[in-house]
Amino acid sequence: MRFTLSCFLLLGLGNWLTTPTRGEEPAKITHSFLATGGETYLLDGSGKELWKYPGSTRDGWVLPNGHILLALSKSKEHPHGAIVEVTRENKVVFQFEGSQSEVNTAQALENGNYLLTEAGDKPRLMEVNPQGKVVVDVPLKAQTKDHHLQTRMARKLPNGNYLVPQLLDQVVREYNAKGEVVWEAKTPNWAFTAIRLPDGHTLIGCTHGNQIVEVDAKGQKVWELNNDDLPNKPIKDACGVQRLPNGHTVFTSYAARPGELKLLEVTPDKKIVWTYTDKRGAGIHTFQILDTNGKVLDGPAMK
C-alpha cells in the first residue's frame, strides 16, 4: 500500500493513516519504543507506559533478555556518568562508572562485552567485560575545549571497528582497535548519530543542523532530509535516528516542546507516515523502535 500526503494526524501517539484502496479499512502504523533523555520510558503501540527509569539517560537498548541497557547522564549519584543494565523492576545487574566528564554511549556486544565512550580531556572508547574490566581502550581524536561536544552514539561494526560521530569536529570517524582512523566523512553540522547500513552507506543525524544525511563509502552525500522537505518544518534538533527494515527512517526532534512532534517516520521519498507527540516536558534524546503494528522488527536495530 502506498502512503500519500493526504494523511491525518491522530492525537496521543500521533499515528498516521494510509489511504485505503476500495473496500479496505484505513490502516494505521503503530510502534512500541524505548525513549531516553530527561525521561526514560518504554511505551507499547497504543501509547501505554510499560516501564520507566528514575533518571536521565543518554543512550539505551532493550536487550534480547528483556533487560534494558542505559548510558546514564552525570548526576549526584553518578558524577561522571555511567552505564547500567537493569531488569524491568529496575534491579541493577551490571554497572560501570565513568571516570571523566560524561558517558555518552552504551551498547551490548555479541561477545558479551559492553561498549561505552567517555568524554573528557582524554576522550576514549572502551569495551568492558561482564566483570567490569576494561578489555579494549581506544583513544579518540577529538577537540578537548568542549567535552560535551566530543562524541555521541558510537557503535561497534561487524568488521570489529568502531563508528564514532564527533559533534564539534563535524566528522564521523571509523576507528580500529588500535585507535587508527580508517575512514571518515565530514558532516555539514554536528554529527550526533551514525549508522553503518548493510550496503556500506552511513546514515548520520546532524543535530542542530536539523538534517539527516546518508553518505556512501567515499563520504559523498546520496540522500538528505531537512526541514525544507517536510511540512511545517518539524525538525528541531535531529539527535537519535533509526533505519527500519522497510527502508523508512525514524528520527527525533529533541528540542520539540510538549505537544509538538517528537518522533517522525519518513519514507525514502520523504513522506511522513508516522509521528509521535506527548505532553512530557522532556524531549527524546535517542530511542529504539521495537515493533511495527505489534510485529517485532527483523534483524539488529540500525540505530
Rank of each mutant, 00 (worst) to 15 (best):
R2V: 03
L5K: 00
C7D: 13
N15I: 04
N15D: 12
T18G: 14
T19H: 11
T21N: 15
R22N: 05
E24I: 00
E25R: 14
P26A: 02
I29M: 11
T30G: 06
T30S: 08
T30Y: 05
H31C: 00
A35F: 09
G38A: 03
E39F: 12
T40N: 03
L42K: 09
L43S: 09
G45P: 10
G47Y: 00
E49G: 08
E49H: 09
L50I: 06
D59C: 13
N65Y: 14
G66K: 12
I68L: 02
A71T: 02
V84K: 08
V84D: 03
V86T: 12
V92Y: 13
Q95K: 15
S99W: 15
Q100W: 02
E102N: 11
T105M: 03
A106G: 08
A108M: 13
E110H: 01
E110P: 08
N111I: 00
G112A: 03
G112D: 07
L115D: 07
L125Q: 07
L125C: 10
E127D: 08
E127I: 07
E127R: 11
Q131D: 12
V136G: 01
V136L: 10
D137H: 05
P139V: 01
A142V: 08
Q143C: 02
Q150T: 07
T151A: 12
T151Y: 10
R152L: 06
M153I: 14
R155H: 14
L157M: 14
G160L: 07
N161W: 05
L163N: 06
V164T: 07
V164E: 00
V164I: 08
P165Y: 00
Q170M: 04
Q170P: 02
V171C: 10
A177H: 08
A177T: 14
K178R: 13
V182S: 02
W183K: 07
A185W: 06
N189Y: 05
A191Y: 01
F192S: 05
A194G: 11
L197R: 13
G200P: 01
L203K: 02
L203D: 06
G205M: 00
T207M: 01
N210S: 03
I212M: 00
E214R: 15
V215Y: 00
K218E: 10
K218G: 12
Q220G: 13
V222T: 10
W223M: 00
W223I: 09
L225A: 01
L225P: 12
D228P: 01
P231D: 05
P231N: 07
P231R: 03
K233R: 06
P234T: 06
P234Q: 05
K236G: 10
D237C: 09
A238Y: 04
G240Q: 05
G240F: 01
R243F: 08
V250D: 09
T252I: 03
T252K: 06
T252N: 11
S253N: 12
A255D: 12
A256S: 05
L261H: 13
K262M: 07
L263G: 09
L264W: 05
V266I: 13
K270N: 05
K271I: 09
W274Q: 15
T275H: 07
Y276I: 00
R280P: 04
R280W: 11
H285N: 14
F287A: 15
L290Q: 02
D291R: 07
T292K: 15
N293I: 07
G294F: 03
A301E: 06
